[in-house]
Design a protein around this nucleic acid. Structure first.
Length: 310
RNA sequence: GCGCAGGUGGCGGAGCGGUCAAUCGCACUUGACUGUAAAUCAAGCGCCCUUGUGGCUACGCAGGUUCGAAUCCUGCCCUGCGCA
């Protein structure tokens, strides 16, 4: 994969809007999109899936009010999407938007995906090897995986979270497919392609909790349960739903009779809140975010940014 | 009223004489994150003290037995089920 040279020319400006779930990012993005002749690139790891709408809080055609959106409905929920794929597709979309002289506005709550396009880390060119992954997961516990990695790639083993099967499996996958080099020779290279304004939507915990609960009830009323039922009828397994998480996971449990309606609402509500907190701990360490409390503040920031004033 | 079962940390639920501030799950708090990221994983979680093979208060309430009790005995209060 070749990387554009960025050193000797001025980088294109883009805006990125982030924040925890239910903080009101989408509406703000559309608002800025209109004002600055922009197009939205979603940075949401679940909104990429076709048919997952209500459960992911995907923006509707009406709500877009003419502002084009990208990276929505790009893949079937039966296939597993990933950051590297997201990175490639999003870059392509951004390039295209810029070529047309419009402003790309990245918007979403998946911190990793935002990082993928803003900081632009180079991911190793090793695709998921599902056969190997299945084999490794059948192997036994994490201690076994860790021992294996330690033998194959001591440098990586030193850094890794030895209890995390996902990380362990991927690390083994990388080293197995790369005979010569080691982890250290492959450390992540960051190469930002754009000059990015990072806007974080700030919400107090109390307000966030309120909005999450309110939004959850609305989603149920709008037919979220039927949506999950329909996806299942179309062949999305319960197991896959559990992997997708949150609304899909818990509604699936409800549809299987493993939760009552009341339990569904209660646990889902707390799980979404826990997710919002996880998002916040990710964003907290992200450098350079301008946290705003009102759309007005965001507009102001965007204006200055577009004029090149800081 | 009688019989049986039971009252343990925010909740559920172990423990049934010592190694119990009390297994475990949930919730809560903090954090990690190099192609599954709404996923996956870690730490903390009675109170006090910076610390520790530290101090204090705790297993419904009040007493008792014992070197020692969440665990045994007595009384009381409360809850569930059964019989009246």
């Amino acid at each position: 994969m070749s990387r554009p040279l960025t050193k000797n020319h001025i980088k294109s400006r883009i805006i990125a809007i982030l924040g925890p779930t239910a903080s009101g990012k989408s509406a703000l993005a559309v608002c800025l999109g209109k004002q600055f002749n922009g197009e939205i690139i979603s940075a949401d790891s679940r909104q990429v899936y076709r048919g997952m709408d209500l459960g992911t809080g995907k923006i509707t055609k009406q709500e877009m009010t003419g502002v084009p959106h990208h990276m929505l409905d790009v893949v079937s929920p039966k296939t597993v999407f990933d950051v590297a794929r997201y990175q490639r597709m999003a870059h392509k979309a951004i390039k295209d938007i810029l070529k047309r002289g419009k402003l790309p506005i990245v918007c979403g709550g998946t911190g990793l995906y935002i990082k993928a396009i803003v900081e632009n880390p180079a991911y190793p060119e090793i695709k998921p090897d599902w056969k190997l992954r299945a084999h490794l997961s059948r192997l036994g516990g994490t201690s076994e995986l860790f021992a294996m990695l330690k033998k194959l790639d001591p440098a990586r083993a030193k850094m890794i979270d030895r209890h995390n099967p996902r990380r362990l499996v991927r690390a083994i996958e990388i080293i197995k497919h790369r005979v010569t080099s080691t982890w250290e020779s492959n450390s992540q290279v960051m190469d930002p392609l754009y000059d990015t304004l990072l806007i974080g939507v700030e919400k107090s915990p109390e307000e966030l909790k309120r909005t999450i609960f309110k939004r959850l009830r609305e989603r149920i009323k709008k037919g979220m349960i039927a949506e999950v039922k329909k996806l299942h009828a179309q062949g999305v397994s319960w197991k896959r739903m559990a992997e997708i998480g949150l609304e899909y996971k818990y509604v699936a449990l409800y549809l299987q009779g493993k939760l009552t309606k009341k339990e569904l609402v209660e646990t889902l509500n707390t799980k979404i809140w826990q997710y919002a907190r996880r998002q916040m701990t990710w964003f907290r360490k992200t450098k350079g975010i301008a946290w705003i409390a009102t759309p007005k503040q965001a507009e102001k920031l965007a204006q200055n940014f577009m004029r090149g004033v800081f």
